[in-house]
Each structure stands twice: as structure tokens, then as C-alpha cells.
Amino acid sequence: MTAGAPVVTVREVSKAYPSGTLALDRLSLDVEPGELLSLLGPSGCGKSTLLRLIAGLAEPSSGSIAWTDTAAQNRLGFVFQEPTLMPWARVEDNVRLPLMLAGMSRGESGRRVGEAIAHVGLGGFERAYPRELSGGMRMRVSLARALVTRPRVLLMDEPFASLDEITRFRLESDLAELHQRQRLTVVFVTHSVFESVYLGTRVVVLSPRPGRVIASRRIEGPAPRVEAFRTSTAYLEACRDVSALLAAAMERPRTLTLSPSGSEGISPPPSPSGGRGQG
């Protein structure tokens, strides 16, 4: 990993919904350049909210989110949990959308659209409509659309959660490769321990709502990831650690968040039941 100034600095950010529910509580986080940061936490811990705040789709109630590199901020890709395609538009037009909105003509954008579609392995499906594709293929279209702007930063909100395992494994490998090849910075929200470890160069564990950073753990593994990593000792060890961290996060009483947030690692509890707390 190249050590440099963080791409995004999140400082003491809190977010309350209009209903008064606190989604995030004084959360701090640095996104380092070139990393694939897995944000891991239980459902409803505010990780999607955090991603929306980073993207600028919502404003924090307090605290600050700073992009050190505004060029990166302007070249941002976002992938939602659902493919979020326009059903009335063909694959190529869905992928073209960001360029079209930026005022680029069809002629200019044509090559980049073709490239992006090829990158995600959907060559030949340019003229298809979303409903004619499988769930995994739709997600690839969504990915191609995020890549077409040649982003520096990719924000992904549980993009593979609704896919079957085989499709998910393939897309995870593809994403790992894209991350490596295009030197992307990726923030990847997930509630799966295994996914967070397989993909992430770093895993940040969030507490249940209101979300705070409980722990951060680097994952050592081949770059880009290969399927063999899934059965390696390093992977399994990391999964056990992260599971334990998550379990610890789940056990903490919600009102008691005294430890300094954002610090590296709370030591996992001594209990050997490392597989707990993936819910």
C-alpha cells in the first residue's frame, strides 16, 4: 500500500435521522489511497448512511467529511445494493448515463462505454434490456456504469448481497482485479465477514446503531486476490479475528461507548467462539 494523505477524512461525524434516531455517533475514519476498505457491521449500523455521507448524497448532522483530493471527489463511482438500472434503457445507455449527464456526445462516449462493458465481461449484451439479464449480469452493468467515468474512488453499498454465492465469488474476484489494475480506492460496505476479509486490504468493524468504529484490521493477502486465498490459513485466521471483533462489537452495551473511537483494534475477547456474531 502506498502511504499517503488519506483520500477522505471523516472526523467525529454524527448523523441523526429526522425521526431522531441516531445512525452514526461521532464516527472517525480515514480512507487511504489505493486501499480496498471493507466496512463491516451488523444490519442497520449506519454503514450505508456513512457511504451516502462520503458520496455527498446527505449532510452529516455534525462533524466533518473532507476530501483531500477534489479531483477524486469529482471522479466518484457509486454502486448500490440493487443494480439500480433504468429499465427502459439498453445496457449501453445505462452504462453511458454518467457521461451523457456530463454532456458528452454519443460519439465521444462510445469507446469508453464499450470498454467499461468489456471490463465487466458483458461484451455482446450492449443492446439488451436490463430485464433480459440475470441478477449477476445486472450488477455487472451497474459496475460498468460506475467504471465508465474512470473513477479514482469507488463506493459500494453491499453490491453483491442479493446474489447467489457462485455469482458473488466471481464478481468478488473481478472486483479485486479491477481494484488492482485500475489503482482504485474502494470503500466496500458489507455485513459478511468472509466478503470483508476476502476483498478488503483493511476491514473496519462498526458497532450496532449508532455506528462507531470499533476496530480496524489490515488483511495480508495476495493482490489481486485469487480463489486459493479463500482456503488459505491467512484468510481463515483473518476471518476468525474479524468475527471475534464483530462479536465484541455486538456485545458492547449501546450506551457505553467510552473507548476512543478510530483507534486500531480492540483486543478480541478471549472466548474461542470466533464464529459468533455474523448476524
Partner: peptide
Amino acid sequence: DRNLVDLFRLYGATRWQALRYLRLPAAL
């Protein structure tokens, strides 16, 4: 679709673009 609305915002769509390319086709 709320996510599509967000997507259009993210990519800096103007009000007119959001109407022309998103809301009108979705309402068809």
C-alpha cells in the same frame, strides 16, 4: 426509484435532465 434519483444527483444531473431522462420515462 430513490437510488436512481441519488445516482442522477451524484453525477450532477440538472433538474431538466432528471425530468427528461429519469422521471418522465419512469412515469410513462
